[in-house]
Amino acid sequence: MADEVDFFNILKAIAAEPALFAPAGDLARKAVNDIVRLRLALDATDLATVRRVRVLIDGAAFGEAVDGLPAAKVKTLVTRLDPHAAGLATAADRIRHLLALATGAAEPSAAAEKKAAAKKPAAARKKAPVEAAEAVTPTAEPSAGEPARKPRRRLTGRTALRVSEDR
């Protein structure tokens, strides 16, 4: 199909006739999610953009799009929007914070003041040569280009299957 076709306009036309395309409801949902996720994951996405998208598509759809982003992308986006945010330990924390930033319920945090006392001495921060070498060359080395695999689970020996539940 010709490149000059304006597919956003076509989407608009389709949206004007939802009954005609009702059987494609799941596909419409997927298309919305894909479009929004791609926009959110772009390097150029700033807070103003996130808020515009949130206003445009409403809360539930925005939440669903965010839930489908890979955890690493959410982390990258939240770090960009609010680099000084504290206490975002889990993926769920980061999603909640992103949603709050998007609605305006939260604003980016101010940079924390550097405390001289908290600064570790240079000697302590610098790793000893052996430690540094270990950090670069882990004991259980994964094969080149592949992430380390978790140990396989054992087939037998699950503890819960052996609880007696006696009174």
């Binding site: 839930d67 769920a92 539940e165």
Partner: peptide, 18 residues
Amino acid sequence: VTQAGELLSIALLASSPR
């Protein structure tokens, strides 16, 4: 499992081999 950062509301009455 979460949705919009909140846990899904699922409770369990667990079973056991006993």
